[in-house]
């Protein structure tokens, strides 16, 4: 057991190294010299040379990579070219809204999607099931920002019951204003997630309901509802939890867009501003940061399998 956990934790190292290598190479090998990009269209050759030196771009690529990884291990994600601040500091300043939006979204999505998917599976083929499936396929088809604007148009501009944009910190302005402002972004971002989880829950529960041990439970005289709750749900959990983990990547992409639509000063906005400013250390640092979060969450999910299913012992 401990051995499995150790092995699984260690196995994230090569993946993290690979991600670091990808991100590093992507920025170094991409067509176009970062130095001249940073220097801008009107820079002189001297300006470019100075920036090259400053970024250490004249050194051999292996040296550059090792230096960069060495810094990474010490928790240094680099320094912003324009503000001169460490990327970690910038992330620290912007992380709160992003984390909270992600959390409210996951909680809301799971709370809505799992019961929805379960009921759809339990009544497979019924009208309710079809409505859930229609919702789910539509949820995959509407771009998240279009959905955001539709919700703003309906609830903020027409009904005027929720604010159009903005973010209020629960730590500074209090929990009420926070909820008031986070509701629309959360719902917007949740839709695709709900679609994903509800679909997987439904599929997984339907599959489990065909299993022999469900028949055994019926042979015992157990009621259908208890069969669903006690025998089916826990067996159906592993694929659902897995899809939540995979969905984290979707969530991260969605956060960037949602923050942009609702004008939330989070990490997504930081990325977009950095892209516009071509501030490469920030882009690099943020991609790494998000990737490591994804790897960490999926590590946790893998480890949670052992709690969900006693057969999984390594």
């Amino acid at each position: 057991m401990t051995r499995y956990i150790t092995m699984r934790v260690l196995s994230t190292i090569p993946v993290m190294v690979l991600v670091a290598l990808f991100v590093f190479l992507m920025l170094r090998l991409a067509p176009g010299d970062p130095a001249s990009v940073i220097a801008g269209d009107y820079a002189t050759a001297e300006d470019v040379a100075r920036i090259r030196e400053q970024l250490g771009l004249s050194d051999p690529i292996v040296v550059q990579f090792l230096r960069w990884v060495g810094a990474l291990i010490q928790g240094d994600l680099g320094t912003s070219i324009f503000s001169g601040k460490p990327v970690t500091e910038l992330i620290g300043q912007r992380i709160e809204p992003t984390i909270l939006l992600a959390l409210t979204t996951i909680i809301f999505a799971v709370v809505v999607a799992v019961p929805l998917g379960t009921i759809a599976a339990f009544r497979a083929g019924s009208l309710l099931d079809r409505v859930v499936m229609l919702f789910s396929v539509s949820g995959f088809s509407v771009p998240v920002f279009v959905l955001g604007y539709i919700l703003i148009y309906t609830f903020s501009m027409s009904l005027k019951i929720l604010p159009v944009q903005g973010y209020k910190s629960p730590l500074v302005e209090g929990f009420g204003p926070f909820l008031y402002h986070i509701t629309l972004p959360t719902v917007t971002l949740s839709v695709i997630f709900i679609a994903l989880i509800a679909r997987m829950t439904r599929a997984s529960v339907i599959e489990v309901l065909e299993e022999d041990y469900i028949r055994t439970a019926r042979a015992k005289g157990q009621s259908e509802l208890t069969i669903l709750m006690r025998h089916a749900l826990r067996n159906a959990a592993v694929p659902v939890v897995t899809v939540i983990g995979i969905g984290i990547a979707l969530l991260i992409g969605g956060v960037v867009v949602t923050e942009s639509v609702f004008n939330i000063p989070g990490l997504g906005r930081l990325v977009l501003d950095a892209v516009l400013a071509r501030d490469y250390p920030i882009i690099q640092g943020l991609i790494l940061f998000f990737s490591f979060i994804y790897i960490f969450i999926n590590l946790m999910i893998d480890l949670s399998y052992t709690l969900l299913d006693p057969r999984i012992r390594y």
Partner: peptide, 17 residues
């Protein structure tokens, strides 16, 4: 490794580069 990089961020970075 590739899967753990958020798709949209990866695309944004690639395109801007």
């Amino acid at each position: 490794g590739l899967m753990s990089i958020p798709a949209i961020l990866l695309a944004i970075a690639l395109i801007s580069l």
